[in-house]
Design a protein around this nucleic acid. Structure first.
Lengths: 202, 202
DNA sequence: ACTAAGTTGCACACCACTGTGCACTTTAGG
DNA sequence: CCTAAAGTGCACAGTGGTGTGCAACTTAGT
């Protein structure tokens, strides 16, 4: 449980969290047994690493939150449209964690925890939207909170429902978010053309 | 089960299906007991109307499919953008059924049934998208099947995640779909302005 | 007012999942 | 090579859900 001494145990703990992230992304109520098998361990072994199922879920949420908030901190483009595009593009790299967070957010039991963990990311989105509306870079027909929420849900939806293997998947995600933000598809493609790093692979 | 003779029994059966639609829209694994209480009946009574939980789910799916496909049949605007907008606007009226279908589609167990039931609606969306791309009314940077799928998911997302009580909710739904289809927000609002019936209340 | 349809509450067996205890085996690392 | 750490397999009790049988009650409809 605390201060594992053996290297393989540390690796297994990480493997469990990876397996849990993937399994929960597919189904927020994935059983302990499902997670264990996916990690290549017996159900019983998980209880050597975590007190109970909730402890695993809490760590999955924390890991996702850390990644998301690090990304949110990094995005500081002056143009709100580029900022949104970069946010979407970077979050794409954390697809597995986004899926897990999205799935857990649909599960009433863990909703308070996930929304608390995602608060910094949400604040950043809010800020980008407000700046973007003032600068008339983003649509102004919706109140900022509504648009922010819609953009968040759009990101969630695309990450969860678009085939991540496709080579164009990342640019689809970025274009979807920009489309929801009010840009026409040619404008969105223009932003992408001016910032090639946004659709870079891997 | 078959040929109920009493009026209250018929009403109760309908009430169960309404309750099931609402409960399943909130959680696709809603228990029999949850559905029963919402319908104002005991758990035991449901088994007088339906063989088992699956029978209820099947009827919920069938009811939704019937409504959706009727709507799909009605939409025949020449302009693909108007057609998409009308589809979104009309489906908004069936929000409860859309939510139930969306929730069930996330539940592996009933996925085949839901997708079969929704096939006609999907074919209609595919047709609109193909016509729209040929006419250059919709974005042409995505293959038709990808765009169709994205539009479907956008509709699902908006209906499930936007507050249905808001007076502007319906136009938000329409604009979201048009935005995903490639229109800028001003173009989308233009379509809405030319077709006031698309954002009419109730 | 009578009767059958409809409903209720309870008990039951069954299933899937959780969390724990314990004896046993495997293996990392000094 | 030894040993403690890590993992396995099994049994067990507990929980919450399903579907059924049955006796008792309420009520719609004639």
């Amino acid at each position: 449980m605390s201060i594992p001494t053996r290297r393989d145990a540390v690796e297994n703990r990480a493997g469990i969290l990876d397996a849990a992230t993937a399994a929960i992304g597919h189904d927020p109520r994935a059983s302990i047994d499902t997670i264990a098998r996916r990690a290549g361990l017996s159900r019983r072994a998980l209880y050597g690493h975590f007190d109970d199922r909730n402890a695993i879920v809490r760590e999955v949420i924390a890991a996702g939150a850390a990644r998301f908030n690090a990304i949110a901190d990094d995005v500081d483009d002056a143009d709100s449209r580029v900022a949104l595009a970069r946010l979407a593009s970077e979050l794409w790299r954390e697809a597995a964690h986004v899926q897990a967070a999205a799935a857990l957010a649909l599960d009433d039991a863990h909703l308070p925890e996930t929304s608390a963990a995602l608060a910094p990311l949400r604040r950043r989105i809010d800020a980008i939207v407000r700046r973007g509306q003032e600068a008339e870079e983003l649509r102004t027909d919706l109140p900022a909170p509504t648009l922010a929420r819609l953009l968040e849900e759009t990101g969630r939806m695309v990450v969860s429902r678009v085939d991540a293997e496709s080579s164009t998947a990342r640019s689809i995600a970025v274009c979807a978010v920009l489309g929801m933000a009010g840009l026409s598809w040619t404008e969105a493609r223009g932003i992408l053309a001016q910032h090639p790093e946004l659709e870079a692979q891997a």
